[in-house]
Each structure stands twice: as structure tokens, then as C-alpha cells.
Design a protein around this nucleic acid. Sequence first.
DNA 1: CTGAAAGCGCTAACAT
DNA 2: ATGTTAGCGCTTTCAG
Lengths: 329, 329
Amino acid sequence: MATIKDVAKLAGVALSTASYALSGDSKVSAKTKAKVLEAARELNYRKNGFAMDLKRSRTNTIALILTDLSGPYYSELIRSVQDVALANGYDLIACSSMGGRDSTAVRFLREKRVDGAIILAHNIHDDILVESAGHRFPIIVMDRQLSSDHLVNVLVDGEQGGYLATRHLIQAGHQKIAYISGPSNSYDNALRYQGYLRAMREAGLEEKSKWRLNGNFVREGGYSATKMMIMQGDLPSAVFYGNDEMAIGGLKALEERGVSVPDDISVIGFDDIQLSEYVHPPLTTIRQPKHEAGSLAGHLLFQMLNGEAVDPSYTLTINMIERSSVRSV
Amino acid sequence: MATIKDVAKLAGVALSTASYALSGDSKVSAKTKAKVLEAARELNYRKNGFAMDLKRSRTNTIALILTDLSGPYYSELIRSVQDVALANGYDLIACSSMGGRDSTAVRFLREKRVDGAIILAHNIHDDILVESAGHRFPIIVMDRQLSSDHLVNVLVDGEQGGYLATRHLIQAGHQKIAYISGPSNSYDNALRYQGYLRAMREAGLEEKSKWRLNGNFVREGGYSATKMMIMQGDLPSAVFYGNDEMAIGGLKALEERGVSVPDDISVIGFDDIQLSEYVHPPLTTIRQPKHEAGSLAGHLLFQMLNGEAVDPSYTLTINMIERSSVRSV
DNA sequence: CTGAAAGCGCTAACAT
DNA sequence: ATGTTAGCGCTTTCAG
């Protein structure tokens, strides 16, 4: 691999001149520049990214860290972060936090291989985030409440969302309402469940533990939790799934058992993933302002990168999308 | 930010000793090692990733380059690549090729910020791939046929898939079969379309241009193409959508217009994305061996990284998943 | 086992 | 406008 040294030699100029010419600095005469560029082309010269980063101690790259790159959930969010990054002349890379302490994500954080990060990965410990965030390394956390310097929260009001969903069901006349939950260590799940409880309590309704099943926020989990619920007998008249993925799994289980939605049972989800509009029946759900959240997270990160002051925490409001999976009784 | 120099000084040892201790080399006495580690902890020392990469001229990271990080399509593929990377002790980052020549992806390729790459991004030009691939930089291309040194193809037999889909429709008695296509510059689309044509020709059926509409491989495109087809009057009795996303958009358009699937019209898709099983009716489709493809791509990349010889091109076979969107006439 | 020293490829003062 | 030079932080010979 040719280095800038080789280019300089071939062009017959000094190292620095070559460097200036290659990075388009204006203090190089057009003729010299052409000579250098030609030499570079001839040698098929490529800048070595690391050397540049090392020198500059900046990467011009931010990372978006997700639990699992393969999740379809965050499409919209990724796109909005990406747009902001692009607009700021930065690169965005996504990396997975699978693999715990040895994950790519953690290495990128600890070794500061990027200039800042947006986190949406509950399996990364608070300590790692707190210890990594710093003056020259802002972090935006989107999946939990966490206070520290150079670390800001962008959250969605999940409690409110859970409350809204449950109240909607109650207002439609439902009294027996199940909750299919996400992982027990999920902050999001906890909030949604709290909202559910608040609405139930407010309406004087009782939460039955047999109607609280775990679906781990995945489709398959929603499917099996629902199967189990059906097998138990004594179906609730409505079920609030902690997210749309599980609701979709649930819809499938229900259909397989000949339980009609919404005639026999009402279903409400959470997130409003793209898919929810397309399932049968179209899913009534709580819409996460994913676009806004991603955009805000991106903007905040760049503000911090530019040394501007920002609030330590932002919470976005949430609202409901009525489709056809809930019926009044 | 503390450097290894600071650590060495605090621990009262030489720079190199600190380096050895920190990277767990066995030629350091346990006592010295403890001293160094303690100093590192005290200073909250973190290795500088770039310096290390520069020195080692290896990153231990591979990149998966996708057109658009936010696409839900490639979940399975991403996961299988990730598993292979993890198993080989490598990190995986995903980056987007949005932004053309200035995209993150292209920078990572040109500046060799990773050790190798898997490409699934038709908007990256052949030249960039050919010019980037090299002895120490293997590339796996999954979205086109491209021959060059240190570059291998992992493809899926799309022509065969298109043929299978169309023949299935024909065998079910359909004669008027529409094809909703992807972007005209897509290699995948071209193959699928060729397969469609082959089956039609073989059955002595005629392709009508009014039944060939473009949906750009996106849901919305499938939706509007279908709307347009309905407006034209004279519906075909079956339609082959170039991918499932478009088919799902189409299903929605059909439902809105009261055209029943499969009673009034049969529908077949391509890809077998997760969602296809969940739409109404469940979509008959051609299953891409995404898991196998990702896994193979990953394995090949590591073989090349290890200097092993591999074939220049691999083609995976494809098969059909029958669900309920096709009916015999 | 430890320490001194030589770079990896590049940028950016500084000097010419 | 161009050249000289000193590192960025780290790993890794090579001598003690």
C-alpha cells in the first residue's frame, strides 16, 4: 500500500506539500497540486484512515449502538439519526451490543473509536456509559434514565403510553385486560407496565397475575404467551401487548385458535412499527415518535460536540393510533 | 485522557513494560503487572484504539455495508454475519452507503478502516469495490456478479426463483400474470424478471407490458403500482411481485379496493421476509436463504482473511414457500 | 524480566 | 509556496 511518502517522492515534492495538496489546502500552487494528484493516482494511493484519526484525534464518525442490529424495530429512528449525521458532515456507523462486555459496541465506547454515541441497548451497563462519557465524548441515552456529565437522555413517555393504551381499552368497556410484558430488565417495559397499572387502578380494576405473561418483546414470545393464555381458559376481553412485535405474534396465535380479533378479543400494541398497519386486523397501537426521537438525539449530540449546552433530559410525548383491533363491548 | 506513558510513569516502569502488562503478555512478573494495572485503574486509562490499529495495521473489525441501514429486509442476514464475526473474534459494524461517493461506506472501503467488507448495496459502484479489494482487504459482494481479485460473490439464484414463482402460478392455471418490478438498475430485479419471462415463454404465455409495473422494491411502490393496475381495468388473474415488501403494499391496495386474495386474484412474492407469514392472507413466496447466505459470506471473508483460497463465486439455490395467497383456477 | 528506541502514516506548526 | 520536523499513542524489536 502506497503511503503519502511515496506520493511525495514520485511527485518530487516534500511530504507536507503532498499532504496539503491531497487535502485540498489552498496554499499549494495548482501545478504542484496536479503533479501530486497525478502521482497519487498512479500509485493508487489511499489515505490511511487510522493515521489520520490518530493525528487529528477525531474520527468524524458517530456510533449508533443497538442491542441487536438485526431488529426491524428501529428503522425509522436509524434513518432520522442518519439524516442528521449526514447533514453535519459526519459518518454514522451502527454497531451491536450483542456479546456483552466484549461487544463491538463496548470496545467502540471504551476505546473512543468514534466521536460520540447514541445508545439504545439495554444490555450495556450504566457504568460503562458513565465511565465512557466525557468532555470530548458525548453520549445520548435513549433507553433509560441516567444522569451523568456529558450524557443526556432522550426518552419517550412510556408510562403515559401504557396509561393511554389501557385507558382506551377501559373506555371501550373492557374490564378483563391482560398485559403481555417485555423483558423484566427493560426500562421501557417497566414504564409501560406502570402506565397499565395506573389506568387499571384508576378505574378500580384488578390486575390478575394470570393475565400477565412475559413475551420478551419478541414476536415469538407474544405468540407463545398468547397460546398459553388461551390454554389457561378464561380469556380476558382485551390484551395490551407491551410492543407491536409481540402483538403480531399474539394475533397469529389467536387466529390459529379461531379467536377473532376484535370480535372475540380486543388487542392493542405499542410502538407503531411499520408492519402494524399491514397485519390483520390493522393494529391499534401507541405511536412512538421515533422520527422525532432520532432527530432530537442526533441534534443534541452535535450540539454537545460543538460545545453547546443542552438540558440533561428530554421526554417526548406519545399518542395513540386507532385502527381496527379494538372493539367496544 | 491518560496515555500508556502516564500509566508507566505512575507505575514506575518502562513504557514497554506497561504495554506488555496491559496486553496480558506473560513476560511481565505478576507483581509488576499488578502495579501497572493498578496505575491504569487509577488514571482511568483507556487504550487508544487508533494508535493500536495504526501500529498493528489491523482493526479486527469487518464491515457490513447496506444501502440503507434502516431497511427491515436483511435482519436475518445481519444476524448470521454477526454470529460468524463474533465466533472469529472480530467486530462487526454496519454502515450505510447512502450519500453516494461521500458515504460512510465508501470512506470505510477506501481508507481501509476495517479489515474486510461484505457488500449489499447496489448504489456502490463496481469500480470502488474493485479498486478497494486487495490482498489484505477481501470483499464479499452479495448483490451483483463481479469478478476481481480478492473479491468473491455470494449470490442467490434469482432467475431460478423468478422462474419457480411464475411456474407455480402457471401450474395453478393462471395465464394472465403481472410482474411488479424493482428498480431498473437492480441486478436482483433483472434476474427475477428473467426467470418470470422464461417461465412465461416456456408455457407459451405472453407478457403484456401493461402488466409490468414498477414498484421500486418498496412497500409504497407495490401499493401504488397495484392501485394503478386496478384502475387500468382488466385485472390479471395473478401477480408476481418482485419482492415481499411490494407484495405487502399490493395486498393492502387490493384489500382497499375489495379485491379478494386469493379468490379474485392470486399473489406471490419474493424473499420471504418475516412479515410475510403474518399478513393476510399469509403470502406464498420464494424463500431467500438469507441465513445461509450471510453465514457463507462471513465464513468466506474469514477464510480470505486467513489467506485460504476460495472460489470466486457461490450461488445458493432457492425454494418456494406455499402459504395462502395463491389459488388454482 | 525490563528499558531504550524505532517507527506505523499522517498533520500542522514552523522555518525557509 | 514549499520544505523540515516534531509528534499523535501504541507495539515490538533488541540490548541489557
